[in-house]
């Protein structure tokens, strides 16, 4: 009898541990928060007068990566690895600076800053980029940009670098057309100036791990 009691106890204990372990494995996520320093963003375009660019250093938001998310460049992840990540990014429009206030105001007006104060990005899907150079952690990211109140799907390649034990840097570049987001630039001083539709975007986003592991934010 004694042995059967032990046996039942072990089974019960095993079941309890298994019950605890299953959700834990599924919900072990690490949250990285956008930092006020160490990020940069550059938008470049053209006009009939000269090329233009604006720059910013504030990229807010967070990313949450499941525990098995590949962050070790030495261990190349399988191409079909199922990656779970949640990323939401906010860039205050007023943090984008051209170098002159008048041009800034023109840009903010074109981006409807008073109604839509942030550029937003939300990741929908991420997968391993199979033809990435050796030693680089590159991913195909599909997400949605919200600019000037318009939502559009975007695909881009991003590189994730581990800066140190708690910080990651996400680098990438993409492009969009102003017309896709309904952006119309009114030339300053009523100049006969036309701004090109294509905009190139390059960014580096520094995010740091929070002190405690967190569950994914509620949708």
């Amino acid at each position: 009898m004694k042995s059967s009691i032990f046996s039942i106890r072990n089974v019960v204990l095993g079941l309890v541990l298994a019950a605890l372990a299953l959700p834990t494995a599924a919900e072990t996520w690490t949250r990285y928060q956008g930092q006020p320093r160490g990020s940069k963003l550059k938008l470049e375009g053209t006009s009939t007068l000269h090329d233009w660019s604006v720059e910013g250093k504030l990229i807010a938001g967070f990313m949450e990566l499941e525990s098995n998310f590949p962050l070790d460049p030495a261990a190349k992840p399988p191409a079909d690895a199922k990656l779970n990540a949640k990323v939401e990014v906010k860039i205050p429009v007023t943090s984008l600076l051209s170098g002159t206030q008048l041009m800034d105001e023109v840009m903010y007006e074109a981006m409807k800053q008073k109604q839509y104060k942030d550029i937003q990005y939300r990741l929908k899907q991420i997968s391993v980029k199979t033809d990435a150079p050796a030693g680089a952690l590159q991913f195909n990211a599909v997400g949605e940009f919200s600019i000037a109140g318009m939502l559009r799907t975007n695909s881009m390649v991003v590189t994730i670098e581990r800066v140190d034990a708690t910080r990651l840097k996400v680098k990438g570049d993409t492009a969009f057309k102003m017309s896709d987001y309904g952006i119309k630039v009114r030339a300053p001083l009523a100049l006969p100036l036309k701004v090109g539709d294509d905009v190139k975007v390059a960014f580096e986003w520094l995010a740091a791990q929070k002190a405690e592991a967190a569950k994914p934010a509620e949708k």
Partner: peptide, 17 residues
């Protein structure tokens, strides 16, 4: 113009960081 811009920037920064 400068005061409005700085005030907006401070508010945006604090909301995010």
């Amino acid at each position: 113009g400068n005061a409005g811009k700085v005030a907006t920037a401070v508010k945006d920064f604090k909301e995010n960081f």
